[in-house]
Amino acid sequence: MTASDPDPDSAPSSTLAPAVLISEVGPRDGLQSVAATMPTAAKQGWIAALHAAGLREIEVASFVPARLLPQMADAAEVVRHAVALPGLRVMALVPNLRGAQAALAAGAHKLTMPVSASEAHSLANVRKTPMAMVDEVRAIDALRRGLAGSGPMAGLEAGISTAFGCTLQGRVDEDAVIRLAVACAEAGADEVGLSDTVGYANPAQVRRLFTRLRSELGDKAGAAHMHNTRGLGLANCLAAYEAGVRTFDASQGGLGGCPYAPGASGNVVTEDLVFMFEAMGVATGVDLARLLAAREALRAGLPGEPIYGMTPEAGLPKGFAPAAAPAHSRDTSTGEMRNV
């Protein structure tokens, strides 16, 4: 049995449902932000190791032209491998209709779209205005609905990039962020999250914006995607949790950043985020020991690339016990989170 075909019995033994969903974005957000290209087989082995640790939603690829992001040239092959892992919801980033067509053809379960609240960042990142990206959301929603007769309809998430500030534009108006989020939901997105693309956010701002988002969108209010650029990643995740957020993006080893946002660096470290929640008694469904072991697959695929994390460096505290997961917070037949 190869590293890309983990023993099903190696999954965490608990069948109880987690209270929060940790959505791993390292294989996409992390890998597209480093200069080196991880070999396809190494990506598959890393994704399998993350899955074996209990992660059940992983963003595995970005469907963009290979000339722009050669690190993602094997996106379809990586998706086809990942969808064979039992119980895994496979996500792919798509910036436009063409990318969505390719991702759906490869079998992705969920599409994520970057819709920037900063016009300057939007033009640099996808060469479209924010409202033009709302039109893309509408077109992709129509595409997935048109294909729904051939199987389960893929999910569609809009991530509002630079929601807390932008290195190109500076301040981003909070009212504009909420208007854009509502427009994406009205255009067909199942959920709309907020992203601190450049690490400008602070906990008070995070709590305020997510409270407003949840007030406007209810169950369609989605994930918190925080960066640790200025050391506030975990504090911002905690503020989002206190505002009612239950889905959190994170990247193993803290890999990630936006290549089109100067000064953007590292995502929240998955290992540290899982430890924080488990130590608080908030179950993640992730086996920390296996998650720490998965770093070896990352290192093997990107030799010499710096990876980060306080928990991996310090180790687990003596006597540490993970949280007990409440059985009512996830529908185990579909993998969908319920309100908790």
Rank of each mutant, 00 (worst) to 15 (best):
A3N: 05
A11D: 05
A11K: 02
S13M: 07
T15E: 14
V20S: 06
I22F: 00
V25H: 01
G26L: 11
R28Y: 13
R28I: 14
R28S: 11
G30N: 04
G30T: 09
G30S: 04
A36M: 13
A42P: 02
I47F: 12
I47E: 00
H51D: 03
R56E: 01
E57A: 10
R67W: 14
L68F: 15
L69T: 09
A73R: 13
A75N: 03
V78Q: 00
R80D: 00
H81K: 02
H81A: 01
H81R: 00
A84K: 10
L88R: 01
R89N: 09
A92S: 15
L93M: 15
P95L: 06
P95E: 01
A100Q: 07
A105V: 14
A106W: 06
M113D: 03
A117D: 11
A120H: 07
N125S: 12
V126I: 15
R127W: 14
T129R: 11
M131Q: 09
V134I: 15
D141H: 07
R145W: 07
S150A: 14
A154H: 10
G155A: 12
A158P: 10
S161V: 02
R171Y: 06
V172Y: 11
V172C: 11
D175M: 05
E186K: 04
E186D: 15
E186S: 04
E186C: 01
A187F: 15
E191Q: 12
G199A: 02
P203I: 11
L217V: 00
K220F: 08
H225N: 14
N228S: 01
R230S: 01
G233R: 08
A235S: 14
C237I: 06
L238H: 14
A240L: 00
A243M: 11
G244I: 02
T247F: 01
F248S: 08
A250I: 02
G254R: 13
G254K: 05
L255D: 13
P259M: 14
Y260D: 03
Y260C: 11
A264S: 15
G266N: 09
D272S: 03
L273S: 09
F275P: 07
F277E: 05
V282C: 09
V282K: 00
T284V: 04
T284E: 05
T284H: 08
L292G: 06
R295Q: 15
E296M: 06
A297Y: 13
A297S: 15
A297W: 13
G301E: 07
G301N: 12
L302I: 02
L302G: 06
P312G: 12
E313W: 10
G315F: 04
L316H: 01
P322M: 04
A323Y: 01
A324M: 02
P326N: 03
P326D: 09
A327Y: 03
R330S: 04
T334W: 05
G335Y: 06
R338K: 12
